[in-house]
Design a protein around this nucleic acid. Sequence first.
DNA 1: GTATTCATCCCCGAAAACAGGTATTTAAAA
DNA 2: TTTTAAATACCTGTTTTCGGGGATGAATAC
Lengths: 213, 213
Amino acid sequence: MKHNLIIADDHKMFLDGLLSILSTESSYNILYTAKHGGHVQKYISINTEEKIDLVITDVTMPEVDGITLNKWIKDTDRNIKTLVVSMHNSPKIIDNLIENNVDGYLQKNAQKEEFLKAIETILSGEKYFSKEIKDIYLQNKFEKNKEKEIKLTKREVEVISLIAEEFTTQEIADQLFLSKHTIESYRKNLITKLNVRNLAGLTKYAIKKGYVS
Amino acid sequence: MKHNLIIADDHKMFLDGLLSILSTESSYNILYTAKHGGHVQKYISINTEEKIDLVITDVTMPEVDGITLNKWIKDTDRNIKTLVVSMHNSPKIIDNLIENNVDGYLQKNAQKEEFLKAIETILSGEKYFSKEIKDIYLQNKFEKNKEKEIKLTKREVEVISLIAEEFTTQEIADQLFLSKHTIESYRKNLITKLNVRNLAGLTKYAIKKGYVS
DNA sequence: GTATTCATCCCCGAAAACAGGTATTTAAAA
DNA sequence: TTTTAAATACCTGTTTTCGGGGATGAATAC
């Protein structure tokens, strides 16, 4: 059974190249080609006859770009697969696409074989991302996680250190010349912030971080 | 100024040897030699004229041995130095002597030079122990410390582990099917036993021991 | 066979911790 | 310049910990 494809790209050269690659494969039927995402949206909207299997789209396009298009498609009809093709590979774009359930991502400099493999893989129901893209995505994720890492303020570090050194709230207050209420606030915030239950949890955190030994 | 010495040893051969070593040194004046500690005690007791600087004594002697003599001297007159000379080097004896403030300890197989050095060192106010003796003493101390190492019972380990895992007394009681009073007792005992102040201290101990991570 | 250790349970009162807010000032960042 | 983050302080409850006791049976050690 033939698969129906749509291609969106404002660069004629690339579009032609892609068409020529696909023309060698008898199982792909190019339903429609567009110069920007808006045309694809319109086409999908009015089309009720044919089942659309896959939309291959560039990222940078006038009016409606590939990122917007991908999201729109996934919001509109989950059954339509999307393969994004781009010259650039900004982590932000990749992240956005993956968040919005894109089915594949390829760099424009990919070889014919990779294009065909990607399309085939996606049509079979799996996702396809080149190794570089996977690496970029993961690297980005790690960095984001790092950012999400709980950061304690100076005072908080000071307080948690003293807590782990077995001082009571009152004692810590005296040492730091602060109100005991203040230290209570810090303790409470630390417990919330570090997602622990009590002194034991705070102490473990302090040790892990090397604030005490 | 000459130093006044007393020597106590029931082995005539050793006594003679020691005397001959000391005779080459003009600064030592042998006040008295004895076959056992009792004689020395008596001599020191009745002597009020001369200042006694050092008592060199064997360990194994009839009636009053060197250990007893050393303690007696140190209890009687702190200004009299003591140098114990022995064939054996039992950790117990060394420990006892050092606890009772002996000023030096030598093995009988020591060389002439070491004898002289030991006496000189002691008379200058410092202590003198040969390397072997120091090692024996320290080794013994380490072992004793090891014995003193706090040992937790199975149950205590179980409880401290759960405490460090941030469970409350009630929760631990439920988990172990024990009364909360029991867990309270364990917590209290642990705090006393481990010489800490609170949960933070218990947690640190548990981590150090690897009961939790 | 008696002393010690272990495991268990109980009581009490004071102190501290925990949970849930709110509020002000200052400094930095967007 | 408005927003955000940090440091500070306070209030009201409830729960938990802490420190001081004592007690009992069972097992272990001396």
